[in-house]
Design a protein around this nucleic acid. Structure first.
Length: 390
DNA sequence: TTGGAGTCAATAGG
DNA sequence: CCTATTGACTCCAA
């Protein structure tokens, strides 16, 4: 068997500065980066680059796509690493995240949509699994080979120094100095404290951050990063609930028990001691305490409905969950233009009516509200307040 | 500069 | 091995 003639390029991606050639045995050390150079070298056939396809891609149902991908991968014992590296050009962790918490299409940036377009393309490739399995075999073969040579090398019970083995490729990486930054791991209590601080003030001032840092004995940058990450991840959970809400009737064929994404939990603000009773099950009704710490207040509390910070109204076109057959239906009139496969979700849209928001997630929305408030205050204190257009 | 979006990559569990 | 989590980084836009 020759080998995979597949879109080859697919992986030659990242060419520059990447240790792509083979699984790193020795670390490539410094992460430096040369410039991106060719962003996406893997257009595959049919001319246009992925970016172009992303640009003209119709709205895709990220939830359905990831669901399908997960199914195919697990059914065939293909790992996220392999899939990510060869098909998406992403690392395992990123793939895991993407598959577990896909953001709705309309909330994704152009860049963020790329992986989904690639997934859709992959799903519509009749030989996708076959190709990946080939890759898998090739990797194993390479691994075996490598292992062998190294074994034979270490066999000689020589005395003396252990010659550092050179990973071929001859990068000069020398001693890495173990200055590899140990990776901060926040203790559960520290996280608790930070979460508590977040509930009071999702957007702490530099001063507050400094205080938190010193109180918790953390670097300022760590606290800053934590807030960035936490906000970002909270936001994402909101998106997910949004998707699930819209994608109710998911009764696909036998199989996926559709894992609940709920996680919730969170201790309440005041005093740590998780008073939490046995809140079992669902994202149960959380007490929606939403008082923002200090700062302004005295709102003329009108129970106003909160409006999403953005995208006032949208019509995600609820796709039917059970999207069968990935292959492109009749559409294929033309010489396999890859784009066609992006339009493979013909089914008419059931156009369901948005049902009232579910309960729960109150807390999260509160944080979101804080977000808005924060911006308003910020705007107010700055230059001419005049227009608060939203 | 600040915040958001995407990712990476180390690491914790299976 | 594999997958999930998560602190840190890179890019970008305002």
């Amino acid at each position: 068997a020759p080998e995979s003639p597949l879109s080859s390029a697919e992986e030659s991606v990242k060419s520059l500065g990447e240790p792509a050639p083979q699984p790193p045995a020795a670390e490539p050390s410094e992460p430096s980066e040369s410039q991106p150079g060719t962003p996406l070298p893997a257009p595959g056939h049919s001319g246009l680059s992925i970016q172009e396809m992303v640009a003209m891609s119709p709205e895709l149902d990220t939830y359905v796509i990831t669901k399908k991908v997960k199914e195919v991968l697990t059914d065939n014992n293909l790992g996220q690493r392999l899939f990510g590296e060869t098909i998406l050009g992403l690392t395992q962790g990123s793939v895991s995240d993407l598959l577990a918490r896909p953001k709705p299409w309309h909330k994704l940036s152009l860049k963020g949509r790329e992986p989904f377009v690639r997934m859709q393309l992959w799903l519509s490739d009749p030989r996708n699994v076959e190709k990946l399995m080939d890759m898998k075999r090739m990797e194993k073969k390479a691994y075996m080979k490598r292992r062998h040579s190294s074994v034979s090398e270490s066999q000689p019970v020589d005395s003396g120094l252990q010659g550092s083995d050179f990973s071929q490729g001859g990068s000069p990486q020398h001693q890495q100095l173990q200055l590899k930054k140990p990776r901060v791991v926040l203790a559960p209590e520290e996280k608790e404290a930070l979460k508590r601080a977040y509930q009071q003030k999702p957007y702490p001032s530099p001063k507050t951050i400094e205080e938190l840092a010193s109180q918790l004995n953390l670097k300022t940058s760590t606290v800053i990063n934590w807030f960035h990450n936490y906000r970002s991840r909270i936001r994402r959970e909101l998106f997910i609930e949004e998707i699930q809400a819209g994608n109710q009737g998911a009764a696909s064929e036998g199989g996926s028990p559709s894992g609940r994404v709920s996680k919730a939990g969170e201790g309440d603000s005041c005093d740590g001691t998780e008073s939490d009773g046995t809140v079992e099950g669902r994202p149960g009704g959380a007490a929606g305490l939403e008082e923002y710490g200090g700062a302004s207040e005295g709102e003329g509390g009108d129970p106003k409905e909160e409006g999403g910070p953005e995208t006032p109204a949208r019509s995600p076109a609820p796709q039917d969950a059970t999207t069968s057959a990935s292959s492109v239906p009749g559409t294929s009139g033309h010489k396999g233009s890859a784009i066609a496969s992006l339009f493979s979700f013909p089914e008419s849209a059931p156009a369901a009516t948005r049902n009232p928001r579910d309960s729960s997630l109150r807390k999260k929305k509160a944080a979101n509200l804080n977000n808005i408030i924060h911006r308003l205050e910020k705007a107010a204190s700055r230059e001419e307040p005049s227009e608060w257009e939203f």
